[in-house]
């Protein structure tokens, strides 16, 4: 059979759904039930009337699997739009992290200096700790965390990726 060798790739998929009870469970259940990966998932209500939410899911798979994931998402009744931001032209992706670092002396100074270089904001501080707020691509946050590990990283909370296509049009326009 002439199936081309299929390589696993990472895709960012935006899903606009009705903002109703259980809709996130439908999406997550679909991924777990069919054995698809979830690398990251975010969800929040986005419309003015709070009737729709936007889910951004980062997943990985062969082209055939990615096509399946989109088709399966699309047939859920409360799903309005499914868009593959990785395939459909350029897009921007951002993630927010809150990073708690504890330390004194040179470590504390170095952490602050690096945070400044990464354009992280200090949102909480004690004599011996900071909580930094950092926004950026996943790679940037990973890099920052790697540096902080040596400087007293205590814990991290990350939002997962949100993403939009570049240009003037929206998903539902």
């Amino acid at each position: 059979m002439s199936v081309p060798v299929q390589e696993i790739a990472r895709h960012t998929i935006s899903v606009v759904v009705d903002n109703e009870a259980g809709v996130l469970a439908r999406v997550i259940g679909l991924f777990s039930g069919r054995g698809y990966n979830i690398d990251s998932l975010t969800v929040a209500s986005v419309s003015e009337d709070a009737k729709t939410s936007r889910i951004t899911v980062v997943t990985s798979g062969t082209p055939m699997v990615i096509e399946q994931i989109k088709a399966q998402l699309d047939r859920l009744v409360p799903v309005h739009v499914v868009a593959d931001l990785t395939l459909e032209g350029p897009s921007v992706e951002r993630e927010l992290a809150l990073v708690k670092v504890a330390g004194v002396g040179e470590h504390r100074v170095e952490a602050l200096r690096l945070a400044d270089a990464f354009r992280a904001h200090v949102v909480d501080s004690t004599n011996s700790s900071f909580v930094f707020e950092l926004t950026g691509k996943t790679t940037k946050i990973d890099a920052f965390l790697n540096l902080m590990r040596e400087l007293g990283l205590v814990e991290v909370a990350r939002t997962g990726i949100v993403a939009l296509a570049r240009g003037k049009t929206g998903l539902e326009s």
Partner: peptide, 11 residues
């Protein structure tokens, strides 16, 4: 009629 059936098992 179900798009997800196409290319699911067989290309």
């Amino acid at each position: 009629i179900d798009r997800s059936s196409i290319n699911k098992n067989v290309h």
